[in-house]
C-alpha cells in the first residue's frame, strides 16, 4: 500500500515526472535561447513559474462550465502521471505490468491533449474553441502514423504488446532503432511526438501569436499552472516512451541511468532543433503532412519489417 502510494506520488510518479519535466522544459528554453544567441533563463525557471501561478487569483469565466473548466487541468496532470508510471515499470525492471500495457500507454498519452480540448471548449471563449478544434484535427492527424509506427515495433518484438517483454526482447536482440525498418519507424514516431507535445511546426492549437494560447486563453492561476505542468511532464514522458519502445529502454544502475539521460537529451535536442528551424504550419498542411508522407513512411517500415529487415 505504502509502496503503491510512493510509486504513484513520488517515484516514478508525480513528483519525479514533474521535476524532470521542468528540467526538460528548461533544457528546451535554454537551448532555444542559445540558438538565438541569448543567455536564457536559469535552471529553476519552470519551477518558479509554476509556484507563481499557484499564488495567483483563479478566474472562472462567468458563462463557462465551471466544473469541467476546473476539472480538465487536473485530468491532464493525472494522465501524464499515469503514463509515466506505466512506462517506468519496465524500465525499473519490475514485471508488474499486464498484457496490453503498451495499448494503455498509447491511450494515456492522449489524455493531456483531450483534457486541453475539453478545457478549451468549457471556457466558452471563441479563441479557445478555435484552438480546441485545431487540437482535435491535429490529434486525428498524428495518431494514425504514430500507431502504425508502433505496430512495426510490435511485429519486430515477436508480436508482444507488453512493455516489459519488449524491453527484454530488445535487451536480447538489440534495440529496434538499429535496424532500417526500426529507424524509419522511430523517425515517424519522433515527428508525431513533436505534434503531441505541441512544439513549433505543429503548435497550431496554441499559436501564441495568432490565437493567444488557444485553449488556455481563459485560464489563470493554478489551473493554468497545472496545464503547463502537464505539458512539461509530457515533454519528459514522451521521450521516455520512445526510448522504452524503440531504443532498448533505460537500464538499471548508475551507468544505465546516465546512458538513459543521454538518450533523453538526444531526443530533446532533435525536437528543439526542429522547433527552432521551422515556421508554424497551417492545420490543413499538418493534416496533409501526417496522412501523406509520414503515414507512407510508417507503412514502408511495416513492409520492411515483414520482409525481415
Amino acid at each position: 500500500m505504502i509502496k503503491g502510494i510512493f510509486y504513484f506520488l513520488i517515484f516514478p510518479g508525480f513528483l519525479f515526472t514533474a521535476a524532470m519535466g521542468c528540467l526538460s522544459g528548461w533544457f528546451d528554453r535554454k537551448l532555444t535561447a542559445r540558438i538565438h544567441w541569448r543567455v536564457g533563463p536559469p535552471w529553476y525557471q519552470n519551477f518558479v513559474d509554476f509556484l507563481k501561478l499557484l499564488g495567483k487569483e483563479i478566474i472562472v469565466p462567468a458563462d463557462s462550465m465551471r466544473g469541467l473548466f476546473l476539472f480538465a487541468p487536473v485530468t491532464a496532470v493525472i494522465g501524464a502521471t499515469l503514463l509515466s508510471v506505466v512506462l517506468w515499470q519496465p524500465n525499473l525492471r519490475t514485471d508488474s505490468g499486464f498484457l496490453g500495457d503498451l495499448i494503455v500507454a498509447i491511450y494515456l498519452s492522449m489524455i493531456p491533449a483531450l483534457a486541453l480540448i475539453i478545457g478549451g471548449m468549457a471556457s466558452r471563449n471563441p479563441l479557445a474553441s478555435l484552438g480546441a478544434s485545431r487540437e482535435m484535427k491535429l490529434m486525428l492527424a498524428y495518431e494514425l502514423p504514430f500507431i502504425v509506427s508502433i505496430a512495426t515495433v510490435i511485429i519486430k518484438n515477436g508480436y508482444t504488446i507488453r512493455l516489459y517483454e519488449m524491453v527484454q526482447h530488445q535487451a536480447a536482440h538489440g534495440a529496434i532503432i538499429g535496424s532500417p525498418s526500426g529507424f524509419i519507424a522511430f523517425i515517424v514516431a519522433l515527428l508525431c511526438m513533436q505534434a503531441k507535445l505541441g512544439l513549433v511546426p505543429f503548435d497550431i492549437a496554441e499559436a501564441e501569436t495568432e490565437i493567444m494560447g488557444g485553449p488556455l486563453v481563459e485560464y489563470s492561476g493554478a489551473p493554468l499552472g497545472f496545464f503547463r505542468l502537464s505539458k512539461l511532464m509530457m515533454l519528459f514522458a514522451m521521450p521516455v516512451f520512445l526510448i522504452t519502445v524503440f531504443w532498448g529502454g533505460i537500464a538499471p544502475g548508475a551507468l544505465g541511468a546516465a546512458v538513459g539521460l543521454g538518450k533523453l537529451l538526444v531526443i530533446l535536442l532533435v525536437a528543439v532543433l526542429i522547433k527552432n528551424t521551422n515556421p508554424r504550419l497551417r492545420i490543413d498542411q499538418a493534416l496533409r503532412f501526417f496522412w501523406g508522407p509520414v503515414t507512407v513512411l510508417a507503412v514502408i517500415s511495416i513492409l520492411l519489417t515483414l520482409a525481415g529487415l
Binding site: 535561447a33 543567455v39 533563463p41 518558479v48 488556455l216 486563453v217
Partner: peptide, 21 residues
C-alpha cells in the same frame, strides 16, 4: 532581443490578459 534578453530574469511576453502579472 539578444542584446537585452529579459528572459534571463524570467520575463515573458504573454498573449492573454489572464496570464499576466
Amino acid at each position: 532581443t539578444p542584446r537585452f534578453d529579459v528572459e534571463r530574469f524570467g520575463v515573458m511576453l504573454v498573449g492573454s490578459i489572464r496570464h499576466a502579472d
